[in-house]
Simulated scan of single mutants.
Amino acid sequence: MVVPQGSLGTWETSSIVGNMFPLLVVLSIIVLWAGITLEDAEELLEQYGILAVMVPTMVDMGGNLGAILSSRLSSRLHLGTTEFDPRDRVLWANVAAVLALAATIFTALAVGAYLLGAFLGIGLPLTTLLIISLISGMSVAVIAVVFSFAATYASYRLGVDPDDTTIPIVTNVVDVFGMVIFIGVSALVLGF
Protein backbone atom coordinates (compact mmCIF):
# COMPACT_ATOMS: atom_id res chain seq x y z
CA MET A 1 0.00 0.00 0.00
CA VAL A 2 1.44 3.32 -0.98
CA VAL A 3 0.55 6.14 1.39
CA PRO A 4 -0.32 9.34 -0.48
CA GLN A 5 1.87 12.32 0.30
CA GLY A 6 0.33 14.49 3.01
CA SER A 7 -2.28 11.90 4.03
CA LEU A 8 -0.79 11.48 7.48
CA GLY A 9 -1.25 14.99 8.80
CA THR A 10 0.92 18.02 8.53
CA TRP A 11 4.00 19.45 10.17
CA GLU A 12 2.17 22.58 11.27
CA THR A 13 2.44 23.36 14.95
CA SER A 14 -1.25 24.20 15.28
CA SER A 15 -2.24 20.83 13.78
CA ILE A 16 0.10 18.87 16.02
CA VAL A 17 -0.99 20.75 19.17
CA GLY A 18 -4.63 20.45 18.17
CA ASN A 19 -4.28 16.69 17.85
CA MET A 20 -2.05 16.15 20.86
CA PHE A 21 -3.47 18.39 23.58
CA PRO A 22 -6.79 16.57 24.07
CA LEU A 23 -5.00 13.24 23.76
CA LEU A 24 -2.46 14.18 26.43
CA VAL A 25 -5.21 15.35 28.80
CA VAL A 26 -6.99 12.00 28.48
CA LEU A 27 -3.73 10.06 28.84
CA SER A 28 -2.81 12.03 31.97
CA ILE A 29 -6.07 11.00 33.57
CA ILE A 30 -5.47 7.37 32.61
CA VAL A 31 -1.98 7.41 34.13
CA LEU A 32 -3.48 8.41 37.47
CA TRP A 33 -4.71 4.82 37.67
CA ALA A 34 -1.11 3.58 37.81
CA GLY A 35 -0.38 5.94 40.69
CA ILE A 36 -3.46 4.82 42.58
CA THR A 37 -2.52 1.17 42.02
CA LEU A 38 0.98 1.84 43.32
CA GLU A 39 -0.42 3.56 46.40
CA ASP A 40 -2.81 0.65 47.04
CA ALA A 41 0.15 -1.75 46.86
CA GLU A 42 2.15 0.10 49.50
CA GLU A 43 1.91 -2.71 52.05
CA LEU A 44 3.07 -5.33 49.53
CA LEU A 45 6.00 -3.19 48.44
CA GLU A 46 7.02 -2.45 52.02
CA GLN A 47 7.01 -6.13 52.93
CA TYR A 48 8.89 -7.17 49.79
CA GLY A 49 11.20 -4.20 49.18
CA ILE A 50 12.92 -5.77 46.20
CA LEU A 51 9.64 -5.50 44.28
CA ALA A 52 9.71 -1.73 44.79
CA VAL A 53 13.13 -1.74 43.13
CA MET A 54 11.68 -3.62 40.15
CA VAL A 55 8.68 -1.31 39.61
CA PRO A 56 10.38 1.52 37.64
CA THR A 57 12.17 -0.84 35.28
CA MET A 58 9.07 -2.99 34.77
CA VAL A 59 6.92 0.00 33.88
CA ASP A 60 9.57 1.77 31.81
CA MET A 61 10.57 -1.25 29.73
CA GLY A 62 6.98 -2.06 28.76
CA GLY A 63 6.51 1.44 27.40
CA ASN A 64 9.86 1.33 25.64
CA LEU A 65 8.97 -1.93 23.89
CA GLY A 66 5.73 -0.40 22.68
CA ALA A 67 7.55 2.73 21.53
CA ILE A 68 10.02 0.63 19.53
CA LEU A 69 7.27 -1.23 17.70
CA SER A 70 5.18 1.91 17.19
CA SER A 71 8.15 3.70 15.66
CA ARG A 72 8.85 0.82 13.32
CA LEU A 73 5.21 0.66 12.24
CA SER A 74 5.05 4.44 11.71
CA SER A 75 8.23 4.38 9.65
CA ARG A 76 6.82 1.60 7.47
CA LEU A 77 3.64 3.63 6.97
CA HIS A 78 5.61 6.70 5.92
CA LEU A 79 7.68 4.59 3.53
CA GLY A 80 4.53 2.97 2.12
CA THR A 81 5.77 -0.55 2.90
CA THR A 82 3.08 -1.78 5.27
CA GLU A 83 -0.43 -3.02 4.69
CA PHE A 84 -1.39 -4.26 8.17
CA ASP A 85 -1.89 -7.63 6.54
CA PRO A 86 -1.74 -10.64 8.92
CA ARG A 87 0.29 -12.45 6.25
CA ASP A 88 3.00 -9.76 6.27
CA ARG A 89 6.12 -11.56 7.47
CA VAL A 90 7.95 -8.32 8.27
CA LEU A 91 5.20 -7.32 10.71
CA TRP A 92 5.47 -10.71 12.43
CA ALA A 93 9.27 -10.41 12.51
CA ASN A 94 8.90 -7.06 14.31
CA VAL A 95 6.49 -8.62 16.82
CA ALA A 96 8.84 -11.57 17.38
CA ALA A 97 11.78 -9.20 17.90
CA VAL A 98 9.87 -7.18 20.51
CA LEU A 99 8.79 -10.33 22.36
CA ALA A 100 12.32 -11.76 22.29
CA LEU A 101 13.68 -8.47 23.59
CA ALA A 102 11.04 -8.53 26.34
CA ALA A 103 12.00 -12.04 27.41
CA THR A 104 15.65 -10.99 27.59
CA ILE A 105 15.00 -7.74 29.47
CA PHE A 106 12.61 -9.22 32.02
CA THR A 107 14.88 -12.19 32.68
CA ALA A 108 17.75 -9.77 33.28
CA LEU A 109 15.49 -7.72 35.57
CA ALA A 110 14.73 -10.76 37.72
CA VAL A 111 18.39 -11.78 37.92
CA GLY A 112 19.47 -8.21 38.72
CA ALA A 113 16.78 -7.89 41.41
CA TYR A 114 17.84 -11.22 42.88
CA LEU A 115 21.50 -10.19 43.07
CA LEU A 116 20.65 -6.80 44.55
CA GLY A 117 18.23 -8.37 47.02
CA ALA A 118 20.84 -10.92 48.09
CA PHE A 119 23.40 -8.15 48.57
CA LEU A 120 20.98 -5.98 50.59
CA GLY A 121 19.39 -8.86 52.46
CA ILE A 122 15.87 -8.09 51.21
CA GLY A 123 15.66 -10.67 48.48
CA LEU A 124 13.24 -13.27 47.27
CA PRO A 125 14.15 -16.59 45.64
CA LEU A 126 15.32 -16.32 42.04
CA THR A 127 12.53 -18.59 40.79
CA THR A 128 9.91 -16.34 42.42
CA LEU A 129 11.43 -13.23 40.87
CA LEU A 130 11.66 -14.93 37.47
CA ILE A 131 8.01 -15.98 37.62
CA ILE A 132 6.87 -12.50 38.63
CA SER A 133 9.10 -10.71 36.13
CA LEU A 134 8.46 -12.96 33.14
CA ILE A 135 4.70 -13.31 33.57
CA SER A 136 4.31 -9.57 34.17
CA GLY A 137 6.81 -8.56 31.52
CA MET A 138 5.57 -10.82 28.76
CA SER A 139 1.96 -9.82 29.48
CA VAL A 140 2.95 -6.17 29.24
CA ALA A 141 4.87 -6.88 26.01
CA VAL A 142 1.78 -8.45 24.44
CA ILE A 143 -0.30 -5.43 25.49
CA ALA A 144 2.38 -3.15 24.03
CA VAL A 145 2.19 -5.03 20.71
CA VAL A 146 -1.61 -4.82 20.60
CA PHE A 147 -1.71 -1.12 21.45
CA SER A 148 1.13 -0.34 19.04
CA PHE A 149 -0.80 -1.83 16.17
CA ALA A 150 -4.11 -0.31 17.30
CA ALA A 151 -2.71 3.20 17.83
CA THR A 152 -0.76 3.21 14.58
CA TYR A 153 -3.66 1.90 12.51
CA ALA A 154 -6.22 4.20 14.17
CA SER A 155 -3.98 7.24 13.67
CA TYR A 156 -3.49 6.36 10.04
CA ARG A 157 -7.21 5.80 9.46
CA LEU A 158 -8.03 9.12 11.15
CA GLY A 159 -5.49 10.91 8.96
CA VAL A 160 -3.27 11.86 11.91
CA ASP A 161 0.48 11.36 11.70
CA PRO A 162 1.24 8.23 13.80
CA ASP A 163 4.57 9.79 14.79
CA ASP A 164 2.59 12.37 16.77
CA THR A 165 0.23 9.99 18.56
CA THR A 166 1.44 6.42 18.86
CA ILE A 167 4.28 6.75 21.34
CA PRO A 168 2.33 8.86 23.87
CA ILE A 169 -0.66 6.52 23.63
CA VAL A 170 1.32 3.30 23.84
CA THR A 171 3.71 4.36 26.60
CA ASN A 172 0.97 5.75 28.82
CA VAL A 173 -1.41 2.83 28.37
CA VAL A 174 1.37 0.28 28.81
CA ASP A 175 2.63 2.10 31.92
CA VAL A 176 -0.80 1.76 33.49
CA PHE A 177 -1.24 -1.89 32.52
CA GLY A 178 2.36 -2.61 33.47
CA MET A 179 1.82 -1.32 36.98
CA VAL A 180 -1.51 -3.11 37.43
CA ILE A 181 -0.22 -6.40 36.03
CA PHE A 182 3.04 -6.30 37.99
CA ILE A 183 1.29 -5.63 41.30
CA GLY A 184 -1.41 -8.22 40.54
CA VAL A 185 1.06 -10.96 39.56
CA SER A 186 3.30 -10.16 42.53
CA ALA A 187 0.39 -10.38 44.96
CA LEU A 188 -0.84 -13.62 43.39
CA VAL A 189 2.59 -15.31 43.35
CA LEU A 190 3.41 -14.21 46.90
CA GLY A 191 -0.07 -15.03 48.22
CA PHE A 192 -0.55 -11.49 49.43
Rank of each mutant, 00 (worst) to 15 (best):
L24V: 04
M20L: 15
P22E: 09
L24A: 03
A41D: 00
E39H: 14
F21N: 09
E43G: 01
I29V: 15
N19I: 10
G9Y: 01
L38H: 07
A41H: 00
I29S: 14
S28W: 10
W33F: 10
L8D: 01
L38E: 07
E43L: 08
S14Y: 06
G18H: 09
G35E: 03
I30N: 06
T13F: 14
W33N: 02
T13D: 10
E39G: 12
L24Y: 05
L8T: 00
W11F: 14
T10Y: 05
W11D: 14
L27M: 13
G18F: 11
E39I: 08
S14V: 11
L8M: 13
E12C: 07
L32H: 12
N19P: 06
I30D: 04
T37R: 07
E39N: 15
L32M: 14
W11Y: 13
N19H: 14
A34W: 00
A34M: 08
L8N: 00
T37S: 12
T37G: 06
I16E: 03
E12Q: 13
D40W: 10
I29C: 13
L24N: 03
L44D: 07
E42P: 05
G35Q: 08
V26G: 03
V31M: 11
S28Y: 04
A34S: 15
S28D: 07
E12W: 06
M20R: 14
S15A: 14
A34T: 04
G9S: 02
W33D: 02
A34Y: 01
S15F: 13
I36P: 00
L24R: 00
E42T: 07
S28I: 03
T10A: 06
N19G: 15
A41P: 00
A34V: 00
I36H: 00
E39K: 14
L24F: 06
I30F: 10
A34K: 05
D40G: 08
L44I: 06
W11E: 14
W11S: 13
A41Y: 00
M20S: 13
W11V: 13
V25C: 09
D40K: 15
L24W: 06
M20F: 11
I29G: 13
L32K: 12
N19T: 13
D40L: 13
P22W: 05
E42R: 07
S14M: 10
V17M: 11
F21T: 15
G18L: 09
T13I: 10
T13N: 10
E42S: 15
S14I: 09
W33I: 11
L24K: 01
W33A: 07
I36S: 03
G18I: 14
L38N: 01
T37W: 01
L23W: 01
V25H: 02
P22C: 08
T13K: 14
V25F: 10
L32G: 15
A34R: 03
S28V: 08
I16F: 05
S28R: 08
A34E: 02
T13E: 04
G9W: 01
L24D: 00
T37P: 02
M20Y: 06
F21D: 10
S15I: 12
G18R: 08
V25Q: 05
L44H: 03
V17D: 02
V31L: 15
L8V: 05
L44P: 02
L24T: 05
G9H: 02
I16S: 03
I16P: 00
W11K: 13
G18M: 10
L23A: 07
E12R: 11
E12A: 12
P22D: 10
T37A: 11
S15R: 07
